[in-house]
């Protein structure tokens, strides 16, 4: 059973609209930002790794000479020649 008679009633939240909607809004905003950030982070990382693998294949260099990535974005430590 719906607790509200109309959609306008639902939006008005019995006069408490600003409080209810701002709380829910900030919650969902942060959840969505968290997901987008995780996706962005993963894509960025995969791009960097792919680029590095391709660069090494082109150069025929041994794997062992590579240092691990150590910056948060993974993009900061490119070889200048790349």
């Amino acid at each position: 059973m719906m607790a509200f008679d109309s959609f306008a009633d639902f939006l008005a939240m019995g006069g408490h609209a600003p409080y209810v909607w701002s709380s829910w809004g900030i919650t969902f905003l942060l959840l969505i930002v968290a997901v987008l950030h995780a996706r962005f982070e993963r894509r960025q990382l995969l791009t960097t790794l792919r680029r590095r693998v391709r660069r090494e294949q082109a150069r025929h260099q041994p794997v062992a000479s590579q240092a691990p990535l150590n910056t948060a974005q993974g993009g900061g430590n490119h070889d200048p020649q790349a």
Partner: peptide
């Protein structure tokens, strides 16, 4: 929580913040 749960008898609809808090 937002549309179907009944409003609180004391706090009215502001209690729906409970569902995220």
């Amino acid at each position: 929580g937002l549309a179907f749960a009944p409003a609180d008898y004391q706090q009215g609809n502001s209690f729906r913040i409970l569902y995220v808090h």
